[in-house]
Simulated assay, not measured.
Amino acid sequence: MATGLLYREDAYAREATARVVAAGPEGLVLDRTNFYARAGGQPGDAGVLRWVGGECAITEAVKGPEDTVLHLPAPGVALPAPGTEVTTVLDWDRRHRFMRLHTTMHLLCSLIPGAGVTGGQIAVEKARLDFDLPEPPTKEALTEALNALVAANHAVSETWITEAELDANPSLVRTLSVQPPRGSGRIRLVRIGDTAAPVDLQPCGGTHVRSTGEIGRVEVSKIENKGKANRRVTLVLAGE
């Protein structure tokens, strides 16, 4: 049975109730979860599962078989039995940083139009995108432009299109190394800005803030040469 993904409906759900489907040292499967499973360069969520008479720390959520989410327990902790009702509690500070950084990565894409994204990764302290780009803008120029978009407080929303609609608009896909997941018939698009003239619009399964003003000040800390036409741009949340 596939795990219901509560963060798709509400990325701000810090706690939720769920029922244990399976439990073992390889991970716990729940019928539903607010934990994001590691994918697309975004780490999986960490936190705690609580139930009557116990709790266990979760170090990360990852993808399991048959569209399930595996909640990886800390070594040596007691596990709830299948059928147990649990409360899933996110490490919210960690998740919220990922949401802010991930949304900033979308803004960065909007500032480098036409360049394919060859890789990306989010960590607690920073995020980076690799662009197929011989001559990038300066880090000072990108920092200024990013903070202007943050300050404009653009709304962040989502919409869904069919796989056929994506095939008819291949330019929506910026990532060269990772393609949107297929098979369900629907593709999730994340939009920043107005529907008529979005700042950025591209397929994405990750979690994001509701508006760019929530990100706070950001900084492009460095731009590195990683190949003939591959430039790595590293982002940090300024002052944190």
Rank of each mutant, 00 (worst) to 15 (best):
Q202I: 00
H208P: 01
K226A: 15
K228W: 10
K226W: 05
H208S: 03
D200A: 15
D200Y: 13
E219Y: 04
D200H: 11
R217H: 07
S221G: 14
K222F: 06
L235Y: 11
L235N: 14
I215E: 01
R217P: 01
K228D: 06
K226D: 10
P198K: 08
E224T: 14
E219W: 04
V220W: 13
L201I: 13
L235F: 08
R210M: 07
V220T: 12
R217V: 12
H208T: 15
G205Q: 02
K226M: 13
R231E: 09
S221V: 08
E219K: 12
G206R: 03
C204I: 00
G227F: 08
V218C: 10
E224P: 04
P198D: 01
S221Y: 03
G205D: 03
V209E: 00
K226C: 12
V220Q: 10
V220K: 08
R217F: 10
N230R: 15
Q202G: 11
V220L: 05
R210L: 10
R231L: 07
V209W: 01
L235A: 11
R231F: 06
K226F: 11
D200Q: 13
T234H: 11
P203A: 06
Q202T: 07
A229T: 07
V220E: 13
E219S: 06
V199L: 00
C204D: 15
R217I: 09
G206C: 04
S211L: 02
Q202C: 11
E219I: 14
R210Q: 15
V233Q: 06
G216M: 09
H208C: 07
S211C: 12
K228Q: 15
R210F: 01
G227P: 03
I215V: 08
N230Y: 09
V209D: 00
L201T: 05
V236K: 13
H208N: 12
N230F: 11
V209L: 02
T207N: 08
T207W: 04
I215P: 02
P203Q: 13
N225Y: 06
E224Y: 02
I215A: 05
E214F: 06
T234L: 03
N230M: 14
K228P: 05
R210E: 11
E214D: 14
G213T: 01
T212R: 04
A229N: 12
R210D: 09
R217W: 05
N230D: 15
P203F: 06
I223Q: 15
S211T: 12
K222E: 13
K228E: 08
T212E: 00
D200R: 13
R231K: 13
P203Y: 05
V236F: 07
R232G: 08
K226H: 06
V199G: 01
E219G: 05
A229E: 12
V218K: 11
E219Q: 14
E214S: 05
R232I: 09
V199D: 01
P198S: 14
L201S: 03
P198N: 08
G216F: 08
L235D: 09
G216S: 13
G205T: 05
K222T: 14
G227W: 09
V233Y: 11
V209H: 01
G216P: 02
S221M: 08
T212A: 04
V199N: 04
V218D: 03
V218P: 00
Q202M: 02
T234E: 07
N225T: 05
I215K: 06
R231C: 06
G216L: 04
G205H: 02
D200K: 06
G227M: 04
V199P: 00
V199Y: 08
T207G: 04
S211Q: 12
V209K: 00
L235S: 10
